[in-house]
């Protein structure tokens, strides 16, 4: 990407006592992209995010947001960031609208009409004057997004935004984030431990394990992969295994009554034709949906991330 990055983190490190929670993380995020920060609980996602928004001091490293050094020019740098860290905690004794007024007062040069705009954007018009203690988690999550959008930030940082949401809420959140990135050219950093979720909305994914960033990949690379894993259920299985081994140049693995192999998409009809000609009964041929985790495991050398 040729655009200037919104967020640039270099050598981000956090040490508490003799424990290295975050180890030398480099991160660059560009406008208009959704960057997924993936890792199991306790891998250091939240600690990293805390440092990115100035909630925690970094032991070493440098963070630049929209060109401003986070430590030296905190107020300027952070004014480009909107976010939710962990749960969307709000003042429960206030109404949703009063909560937004509270955060609006802390933004410089934003007209008050912007409050109604973000309320409409997250679809909370009907309940915005109710006290937050009557809100469901999904509504609080929406209110959290609304407060993060108040000052039209160039970087949106959301820690586990789909945590605790029902499937409908997750879908809405995903569509919302995609819209913000595509239409408003906002850079979005989301963290999650849910791989499938990330796969659906992220442009790039960085995987964090034991405090280290072990790989950053573009989602496109995964989607356009030339070969895919398939599973064939056939009878007699032994004969089919031998024949296929000769027919294909790739290894074929046998699992009970199924054969598993990695082939190019175009080759699947040929395989079918070949086996039928050899009088093998075919019950099924199907794709194996490799999870993001599997692929990351391959990429990162099989270290367990869970």
């Amino acid at each position: 990407m040729s655009q200037k990055p919104v967020l640039h983190a270099q050598g981000l490190t956090k040490v508490i006592g003799n424990k290295k929670l975050v180890n030398n993380i480099d991160l660059t995020i560009y406008p208009g992209e959704i960057f997924g920060f993936l890792g199991p609980n306790g891998a250091g996602k939240t600690t990293t995010i805390r440092m990115l928004v100035g909630l925690a001091d970094m032991t070493a490293g440098k963070v630049t947001i929209a060109g401003y050094d986070l430590e030296k020019h905190f107020e300027k740098a952070i004014s480009h960031v909107g976010g939710i860290v962990e749960n969307p905690e709000m003042y429960k004794f206030l109404t949703g609208y009063q909560n937004l007024i509270h955060y609006w007062r802390m933004c410089k040069g934003v007209p008050k009409s912007r409050i109604d705009e973000v309320v409409n954007q997250v679809g909370l018009e009907k309940r915005i004057h109710d006290k937050v203690k009557t809100y469901s988690l999904g509504m609080r999550q929406r209110l959290g997004i609304a407060q993060a959008l108040l000052h039209s930030p160039s970087l949106l940082i959301l820690d586990e935004p789909t945590n605790g949401l029902d499937p409908k809420g997750v879908k809405e959140m995903r569509e919302h984030l995609l819209q913000l990135a595509r239409e408003e050219n906002m850079a979005v950093l989301v963290s999650s431990h849910q791989l499938a979720e990330m796969e659906l909305m992220c442009d790039r994914i960085g995987i964090i394990q034991n405090g280290s960033l072990i790989g950053v990949k573009e989602m496109r690379e995964f989607r356009d992969e030339p070969t895919r894993k398939i599973r064939i259920i056939a009878d007699p299985i032994q004969k089919a295994h031998q024949l296929l081994q000769q027919f294909l140049n790739t290894p074929v693995e046998q699992q009970d009554h199924a054969l598993i192999m990695e082939v190019e998409h175009e080759k699947i009809p040929d395989i079918n034709h070949f086996l039928v000609n050899e009088n093998i009964k075919i019950y099924a041929i199907m794709h194996i949906n490799q999870t993001l985790e599997d692929r990351f495991l391959e990429m990162t050398g099989g270290n367990s991330i869970a």
């Binding site: 928004v53 100035g54 909630l55 905190f74 107020e75 300027k76 952070i78 004014s79 960031v81 976010g83 939710i84 860290v85 962990e86 905690e89 709000m90 955060y103 802390m106 933004c107 410089k108 959290g144 407060q147």
Partner: peptide
């Protein structure tokens, strides 16, 4: 957290 990630 939300209070501290504002520009104050």
């Amino acid at each position: 957290k939300l209070l501290m990630i504002r520009s104050s």
